[in-house]
Amino acid sequence: MKKAAKIISLNPEQYTNYSSKDLSKVNKPPDQISRVMSDYLVAVAEHQDQEAFAEIFNYYAPSVRLYLLRNGVDASKVDDIIQETFAAVWAKSSQYDCNRATASTWIFTIARNKRIDAFRRENRPEFNPNDPTFQPSFFESGEQAMTVQERAVTIRDALTQLSPEQREILQFSLFEGQSYTTIAIRLGIPLGTVKSRARLAIGKLRLALGGQGEDL
């Protein structure tokens, strides 16, 4: 515990001096950091590696905080949700599959679910891959043509190719938790336009990954 407390106070400049892990990568672009974080998550799962967990916490806690604040979570509750999120990251690390999701994606879904648990009266049902009626895909073993890291890089690039109007719908919806009606009012545009921008944006990302651009 002492050791971890020390790690948390590391500032970014000190990262490069920290030799026990390959932290020099931390100054690299986000997709490479994502790869490092994915390794850390596996280290937490396999060895209960507290230092790796500290790195994950240091990197993601500030952006999870911003995510919660943008979603309108009361400032007095934010710390609690951050704590629940990262306690779950550790507790569920053994369920993390680095061939199925990047660390960022996985942590995003946990933060989202913790936010809903705390503040949404309605449930958000999810499918259960262990259910006997679940229909697995041909590729579901993770043997896709691209690795998840490559897919994330492709999505990141495709995101920059979207129009600013499409990108802001994605941001408002996913990162700020706003309903399409709220977004329509905020932007002063019809609800149908918000939905069609969302649809077009998702279609373009799907196209970038080799899928179809149109909704089926």
């Binding site: 500030p62 952006s63 911003l66 960022s104 994606t105 996985w106 942590i107 995003f108 999505i155 990141r156």
Partner: peptide
Amino acid sequence: ETLGGIFLENAT
């Protein structure tokens, strides 16, 4: 969801 992760990374 990957996009959600990317927004999280961008926010860091």
